[in-house]
Design a protein around this nucleic acid. Structure first.
Length: 490
RNA sequence: GGUCCUGUGGCCGAGUGGCUAGGCAGAGCUCUGCAAAAGCUUCUACAGCGGUUCGAAUCCGCUCGGGACCUCCA
């Protein structure tokens, strides 16, 4: 496996040469969604970014175990250890059992991921399915002396941990600085330290989601599920852990602390964080209320949207920005991507019908090399896309007879375009194959045949009437030199 | 307030010392019964000021602007 893959590691704040623990194999864990409401586009961006990373690792020939969890238990609403959990709160609103909420939004999440053509992870574990593992881990951390129990709730002792291990390494912060930013403990607090966080939380009488534990009935804390499930399926130390940048400071910092305290090993070699999706320069988030749902994006049914955009146009839009940069949403940018995506796809369709020559006027090997260089440089999809557009330019020029390509180079070009566009970027042709579509195709063939005959007889009145009447029904006819094409305006 | 990121042409967005990605829009051309589309070619840029250097969008400093995290959040 010869490559020079560089990955930006949040731990070192540098790009590092990627070297997996076991040659040829990669263990990757990504923090998945909390399924108490619909995923919005910002959530989707993270999972699409990691889909690109997963796909490229697979393309390089790695055997990848990709674990992405479903958080379906425990998370509290506020920063205090009080209040309802998200599932119970939503359940009251919707008059449903908490697990009904979980089921509904898990299915919705999967639907959306399928629309965006993401590959399913190898394992998709749920927090509620791993309560035993989380309890065992909490017990182990207590046994090692880094956690303590108060009235049925178990807290992680951050200040004690920090004496032996660096607590804030992921955000480059010292404990003293972190302490400054927190409130004083009140009289009612059970915690010993201001930064201490819960591994296990005692359930109040009205709390529906609850499990028995050595400390009584309760539910797991905010961060323990990822530590427990990642070590179960990937080992105490594994290659890549990813998630959104918003998880870096708290969730991932605490994950490291839990695993380190439990196993006395650094859990992860490469920490990867994807950046946020913004709308008008501000982060899209549930609390800010500036999010929209994928379904609204596809249909255009939202005040922020001028029209609907197809899943692949949106995916392509995301691929034109590096995963560590913020991506600002706008109708203008999305429409630009939509057109660019169509241009790329049209070029690929021409690939099968290109005429070959004895020599080539463009350096196809060089193009292929540049594609790999782009992706090896910390998954730089925007550079890859730029190179693929250079490929599209070559294809179009050969098609127009302005450039030549040898049979061998054409084969290389085909492989390169297909590998990177479909396998790595995860794009696909969006033409559907339902029986209705096939019937419509048949009807259109008949109409276009009549129009062709009219044109041959120079009966332009008839041919223009057909074109105009179809246009009134949102069907656009285009006479290209290679024949007639038609498309439906959404 | 603390930690960190960021400011690129009309818009989106790469690039971290010399060779000025790419897409969209604009312009020109080709194709064409007309129309539309498409293809090819092409213009416009590095927030401001100062410094380092033979040379800076790229390194350093300051100023101004934007953002994230520090509380659940991908």
């Amino acid at each position: 496996m010869e490559h020079q893959l560089q990955i930006y590691n949040t731990l070192s704040r540098k790009k590092e040469h990627f070297k997996p623990i076991n040659p040829g194999m990669v263990g990757m864990y990504v923090c998945g969604p909390t399924v108490y409401s619909d995923v919005h586009l910002g959530n989707c961006r993270t999972f699409i970014s990691f889909d690109l990373i997963y796909r490229y690792l697979l393309h390089l020939g790695y055997k990848v175990r990709y674990v992405r969890n479903i958080t379906d238990a425990g998370h509290l609403e506020g920063d205090r250890d009080e209040g309802d959990d998200k599932f119970a709160k939503k359940a009251k609103l919707e008059q449903l059992e908490p697990m009904e909420i979980v089921q509904r939004y898990t299915l919705g999440f999967h639907d959306v991921m399928r629309e965006f053509n993401t590959l399913p992870p190898s394992i998709e574990p749920t927090a509620t399915g791993h309560i035993c593992e989380q309890i065992e881990m909490a017990k182990e951390i207590i046994a090692k002396g880094y956690a303590y129990e108060v009235n049925g709730t178990v807290y992680f002792d951050v200040e004690k941990y920090n004496k032996e291990f660096p607590y804030g390494q992921l955000t480059n912060r010292k404990l003293e600085e972190l302490l400054e930013g927190t409130r004083e403990l009140g009289g009612q607090d059970e915690k010993k330290g201001r930064l201490d966080f819960a591994l296990w939380i005692k359930a109040k009488p009205e709390h529906i989601m609850r499990w028995p534990s050595p400390w009584g009935w309760g539910f797991p804390g905010w961060h323990i599920e990822c530590s427990a499930m990642s070590s179960k399926y990937l080992g105490d130390t594994f290659d890549i852990h990813g998630g959104g940048m918003d998880l870096q400071a708290t969730h991932h910092t605490n994950e490291i602390a839990q695993s380190q305290a439990c196993n006395h090993k650094a859990p992860v070699n490469y920490w990867m964080h994807t950046n946020m999706l913004t709308v008008n320069g501000t982060r899209m988030s549930k609390s800010a209320g500036n999010g929209f749902l994928p379904g609204e994006l596809f249909t255009g049914n939202h005040p922020l949207l001028e029209k609907g955009y197809s899943p692949m146009a949106v995916r392509f839009f995301m691929m034109q920005t590096h995963y560590r940069s913020t991506l600002d949403f706008s109708n203008e940018a999305l429409q630009a991507s939509e057109k660019g995506y169509a241009r790329l796809m049209n070029a690929i369709k021409l690939l099968d019908n290109l005429k070959t020559s004895s020599t080539s006027t463009s350096n196809i090997q060089e193009l292929k090399k540049k594609c790999y260089e782009a992706m090896n440089d910390d998954f730089n999809a925007p550079i890859l896309v730029a190179n693929l557009f250079e490929g599209a330019r070559i294809i179009n020029s050969v098609n127009d007879g302005k450039e030549n390509i040898s049979a061998e180079d054409l084969q290389t070009l085909k492989e390169t375009m297909h590998n990177f566009v479909f396998d790595v970027l995860g794009l696909k042709n969006e033409s559907s194959n339902t029986s209705k579509d096939k019937a419509l195709q048949g009807v259109m063939d008949i109409i276009l045949d009549i129009r062709k005959e009219a044109k041959a007889k120079k009966d332009f009145a008839t041919s223009d009437k057909l074109r105009d009447d179809l246009a009134k029904n949102n069907i656009t006819i285009k006479d290209t030199k290679d024949g007639v094409t038609w498309s439906i305006q959404e």
